[in-house]
Structure formats: C-alpha cells, structure tokens
Amino acid sequence: MAAFAEGVPCWVDVTLPDVEAGKRFYGELLGWTFGTSAPEYGMYTQAFRAGKNVAALVGKPDGRMPTAWSVYLATGDVIGTARKVRDEGGTVITDPVRVGDFGTMAVVADPGGAVFSLWQAGSHAGFEEQGVPGSYGWAEVYTRAPERVDAFYEAVFGFRVEPDEGAGVPGVVRWTPRGRPAGAEHAVGGRGLISAGYPTEMPAHFLTYFVVDDCDEAVAITQQLGGRIAIDPVTTPHGRSSVVIDSQGASFAVIDTRTRGDAATA
C-alpha cells in the first residue's frame, strides 16, 4: 500500500469501556467484522469491511479516559512533527512511542485543545479501504480558536486552508495538503467552529465521519442499538449527514455522499 501523504488522516480508532458491546454496535451499524483482540495492546481489535481494515476498537485502561473516536494524521517523521507541534503552540501529551512493528505514534493537541495522534507507519500503513459505505470518509476539528488553529495546521503539516462553501455553515474551512491543487476534491479534512449554540462545556475535538448508504436509515439503526442523535440529519452539497453518539457515549458522524443539495436543509 502506498504511504499516506504528510498530515493526511490515515487511521481512526475508538476507546470504549466494553469492546464486545462496541463490536455488536458497529458490526450492525456499519457491517464490520473484527479480527482477534490483542491483549498486549489493550484488547486492540481491528475492524474490517469486505476483508480490508477500516478502523479499530480498543478497551479503556482507565475510567478517566474519554470514550471517544481518535484520528491519526500521517507523518514520515513522528519525532520531528511532535517537535513542530510544540514549536507552533500545541501540546505533546504522549511522546513518540513504538507500537511493535506496526509503527510509531504520539498523542498531541493543537493550540485550541483538540487531541489527535501522529502516526509514522511501519507494517501498518493505515486504512486499506475508505470513502465507501462502511468506512472512514472525513475528519474535521471543531474549535473556539480558529485563527490560531488554522495557522497551526498550516505550519505543522503545510496544509492550505480554504473556505468550504459546500459545508453549508459559515466559517468552515477545508485543508488541502502541500502540492495538491485547490478544490474540494483534493481536500483531506477541515475545521469547523464551536459556536454559541453549542454547550459551553464542549471541548475542542475532532469529529470522524463514516460513509453510509442512507443517512436516515443509519440514524434509525443507531437509535435501535441504544445510541442517540446529537445533530439531526441535514443535506449539504457534500452529502446528507448527522452527528450521532454510540451506545457507550462516543460521538461520530454518518454521511451519505450520494444525497446532496445546493444548501444545508433538514
């Protein structure tokens, strides 16, 4: 598999109190099957769609840890990138550490407080499948410090920050890696705003989107499985999406990229 370009989201995993319950939830919702859990890595369990890896589930070693999806951004030099994170006003939460022969990771946060991971690939490059139903589709960071955060991702990863008119929400931008042409088709992620309409206690965070065949059906299945809706389905030029919460409290989004509209509508 070809390596992911610098800064491109290459992997996601979710930390859960109960991995077996997570397997039942995501297996039913997204059609995933699962590999053998690795006890030496916190019961780390890879998820597959049609035999290709698409994400992973991991057990919470500590109840104080958040139940949440994590996004990994690719880097060819995790030590150097972690240094850039510090230099540009971010925080290194966990210094670079090798994960067997799979690769080397670090956990960091941007200047607005949104946590993400860096991944320098070894034998595990990242997604074998993405952009199709049942797999990863998109990631964006939500922040209250847009100017500082935009400058951070430009400096650390070389992203070009462009307005995203297709998002249907004012102030949203998209990221395009260095060397790629401008335009939504070349973007790899984006940045939204935590506006006054959100709870004051909501922290800055990354939101992971998974592609589905039908957004409304996925929302209904989420509720049937014990999850709930955080943001009702809306149709934009990018597709019809909804933010939901799984049966254990982890937030994510589902998006049907084939159902599109000219402006954001319910």
Rank of each mutant, 00 (worst) to 15 (best):
T91F: 04
G137M: 05
V107P: 02
A250M: 13
M65I: 10
G35W: 15
V156T: 10
K52D: 10
D246Q: 14
T176M: 04
V99G: 00
N53A: 12
L30A: 10
Y26R: 12
T91D: 04
E6P: 01
P111A: 13
P233Q: 10
T91A: 08
Y142K: 06
A155N: 14
G226Q: 11
T236W: 03
R64Y: 07
G226A: 09
V132Y: 00
P170G: 06
G112M: 05
G90W: 02
T257W: 09
A47W: 06
E6F: 07
A182F: 11
V254A: 02
A184W: 07
G166T: 01
G158K: 06
D262W: 01
A74H: 11
L73Y: 15
D95G: 02
D262K: 02
G197F: 00
L118G: 02
L16M: 12
A167P: 09
P39W: 15
G100E: 14
D62Y: 14
T104E: 11
A68V: 15
F34G: 08
A264W: 06
S195P: 00
R144K: 07
T36D: 15
V219N: 03
V54K: 04
V12N: 15
L30P: 08
T143E: 07
G158N: 11
P199Y: 00
D13I: 06
I231V: 14
T45H: 08
F25N: 05
G158R: 07
M1R: 14
S247I: 11
F127E: 11
A167D: 10
F206M: 00
Y209C: 01
W69G: 02
G197I: 00
T257S: 10
Y198A: 07
W11H: 08
L30S: 09
S123I: 15
R240I: 05
D213M: 00
D232N: 04
Y26T: 09
A106D: 06
V188N: 05
F157P: 03
L118C: 07
R49N: 12
V99W: 09
E40A: 13
P39L: 13
A182R: 07
T15V: 14
T222E: 06
T67C: 13
L73A: 05
A114V: 08
L118T: 04
W69S: 02
R260M: 03
I79Y: 08
G227F: 12
